[in-house]
Structures are given as structure tokens and as C-alpha cells.
């Protein structure tokens, strides 16, 4: 039983580590600010839960497990708000996203002007 838990935690920690580095690489590779927000969100939405649940499987049964769940809930609940506030501030500051298609940017019409 504890052997199984060890292996499960090994897999979770490994997947979390790989995703964590993937997010860091994405942060460097992405072409503009708005695309980088997506890469940063990658490390926070899945890498953090994977790493923390991998850690939980290695711990003894105590109140600390609930604390980790609290940290996890807090990270997952605040991450979108922080991303959204950064994106809005960037738009407000005059940044416009690079677009991959050839259609005109919707930043031109009145509804999205800040």
C-alpha cells in the first residue's frame, strides 16, 4: 500500500516538475505579453496541484494535509484574478495583443477601447 503511494507520488511530482519547467520555457518563448500570461497560467493551474498533491501523498496524516489543501485552493482561486488584472492593466496601458490571423484587431472598435 505504501509502495503504491510512493509510486503515485513519484509520478505526480515528476509530471508537476515537467509542467513547471514547460511553463518557464513558455514564459521565455512566447512572442508577446498576452501569450506569456497563458504560459504563466500553465505552471500555476496544473503544475502547482500536481506538485502539492505529490507532496501530500508523502506526508503523515495530520492537520498539515488540510493546510496544503488550503494553499492549493488559494492558488487556484486567486490565479485567474491576478491574470485578469494584469491583462486589463496592460490593455489600459496601451498594449495590444499580436494576432496570428489576418482579420483586423477588435481593438479598433469602440466597445473595447479603454
Amino acid at each position: 500500500m505504501s509502495e503504491l503511494l510512493d509510486w503515485l507520488s513519484f509520478v505526480l511530482l515528476l509530471a508537476g516538475s515537467v509542467l513547471c519547467i514547460t511553463g518557464g520555457v513558455g514564459l521565455l518563448r512566447m512572442p508577446d505579453f498576452f501569450a506569456r500570461v497563458h504560459a504563466a497560467g500553465l505552471t500555476e493551474t496544473l503544475a502547482a496541484p500536481l506538485l502539492l498533491s505529490g507532496l501530500m501523498l508523502r506526508m503523515d496524516w495530520s492537520l498539515d494535509l488540510l493546510k496544503i489543501v488550503l494553499i492549493l485552493v488559494f492558488i487556484l482561486a486567486t490565479n485567474p484574478t491576478a491574470s485578469h488584472s494584469m491583462a486589463r492593466a496592460a490593455l489600459h496601458g496601451g498594449c495590444r495583443p499580436l494576432l496570428g490571423n489576418r482579420r483586423p484587431s477588435p481593438g479598433e472598435n469602440a466597445s473595447s477601447k479603454t
Binding site: 497560467g41 496544473l46 491583462a87 486589463r88 490593455l91 495583443p97 473595447s112
Partner: peptide, 28 residues
């Protein structure tokens, strides 16, 4: 709704208006 969209990697809510959101997405 806006938070769920942002939480999903690949889509990001940039602005919230009365009856529509502005969404930035990495792919169509």
C-alpha cells in the same frame, strides 16, 4: 464564468462588459 475561462490555459478574459467578454485565446 470569467474566472473559469481564465483558469483554463489557452483562453484569457481581458475585459468584462455588460453583455460580452473580450477573450484572448492562443488558438481559434
Amino acid at each position: 464564468y470569467a474566472n473559469s475561462i481564465t483558469l483554463t490555459p489557452g483562453t484569457l478574459t481581458t475585459q468584462v462588459h455588460e453583455d460580452h467578454f473580450m477573450i484572448h485565446a492562443l488558438s481559434a
